[in-house]
Simulated assay, not measured.
Amino acid sequence: MGLLIFGSTGQVATELRRLAPEALFLGRDQADLSEPAACAAAIRAARPVAVINAAAWTAVDKAETEETAATVVNGDAPAAMATECATLGIPFVHISTDYVFDGMGEVPFSTDHPTSPLGAYGRSKRKGEEGARAAGGVYAILRTSWVFSAHGHNFLKTMLRLGRERESLNVVADQIGGPTPAHAIARACLAIAAQLQADPRKSGTFHFSGAPDVSWASFAREIMAQAGLSCSVSDIPTSAYPTPALRPANSRMDCAGLSIFNLSRPDWRTAVTDALTELGAIS
């Protein structure tokens, strides 16, 4: 048995399918993360060489009213996966998020910076991280941010749709972070899983986000420019666009630790071009 990947239709899982079609992909119908024991049993039955968890509860606002359910999916299930991987002596790669931080300040967060989530989603993801570490096996926690691609629900696709429908948009400009292409995350996960098999000492927590850091409004303007849309983007503060869950104002992350895997931050602007080309928005 080769690589086992939890997730099949999400942005990162879709890119993993393209890069590693030979892997065993388990969707919700085969391994529901709301049943952590079933996830562990799936690993035990498959006996893979490594496990990547590319599945998660990603409905940030919905988590505010359904925190228990979100915590099972994002916290208990990864812990169960990591424990089973530790028992089998195989690497476990788990995707986490910038939402584990409070978003204060303007300095990029280091991997060892104390976590202090602003809401239920961040708390649920932090629990998953804690479970992965506590399992005592070979692992990598890959915190990322602002994921986008040509598929699924994401900011790029929303901006492209609205940019075609409207003459102007107001977009939040006081949240800063690194937009991260899903295909780059997928490549990173595969590289990390392979290297952990060869050198378990590389276990740890890592940050992986696109460069350069930018505001949502500037991200939107780049999408409009590359797609050749005349829709103008005006800056607004977060306070003008309230959401049930608080978003971190500072999502900058220090990604220097990636060098241990010979990885570096991807240029999100190039990835925007690739995504828009795939969507037929540019030729």
Results as ranks from 00 to 15, higher is better:
276 L>V: 08
91 P>L: 08
51 V>S: 00
144 T>R: 03
205 T>A: 09
207 H>K: 10
26 L>V: 07
228 G>E: 15
48 P>E: 08
131 G>E: 02
82 A>F: 15
158 T>G: 11
252 R>P: 03
280 G>N: 14
267 D>Y: 13
188 A>Y: 04
90 I>S: 03
37 A>L: 15
93 V>K: 01
97 T>Q: 00
53 N>V: 07
49 V>I: 13
146 W>R: 04
189 C>K: 01
90 I>F: 12
119 G>M: 00
150 A>D: 15
80 A>N: 01
283 S>F: 09
19 L>F: 00
136 G>F: 08
248 P>R: 06
227 A>I: 12
176 I>R: 01
166 R>P: 15
91 P>W: 02
87 T>C: 12
2 G>Y: 04
264 S>T: 14
16 L>C: 07
121 Y>L: 01
12 V>H: 02
37 A>G: 14
251 S>I: 02
281 A>F: 00
27 G>Q: 09
14 T>G: 07
186 A>I: 01
191 A>L: 09
220 A>M: 03
85 C>V: 08
151 H>W: 09
62 K>H: 14
96 S>V: 03
107 V>G: 05
226 Q>S: 10
206 F>Q: 07
134 A>Y: 04
68 T>R: 14
148 F>G: 02
131 G>I: 05
247 R>S: 08
114 P>L: 11
123 R>F: 11
14 T>F: 02
69 A>H: 10
131 G>A: 05
59 A>F: 10
283 S>W: 11
179 P>A: 05
126 R>Y: 09
47 R>V: 14
239 S>I: 13
262 N>Y: 14
132 A>T: 12
276 L>P: 00
77 A>I: 06
192 I>W: 06
259 S>Y: 05
198 A>L: 13
129 E>A: 11
173 A>N: 14
220 A>P: 00
131 G>V: 02
35 E>K: 12
74 N>Y: 05
141 I>T: 14
143 R>E: 03
78 P>H: 07
205 T>W: 04
91 P>N: 12
220 A>S: 13
72 V>G: 08
79 A>Y: 00
46 A>H: 13
275 A>Y: 02
147 V>Q: 04
215 S>I: 08
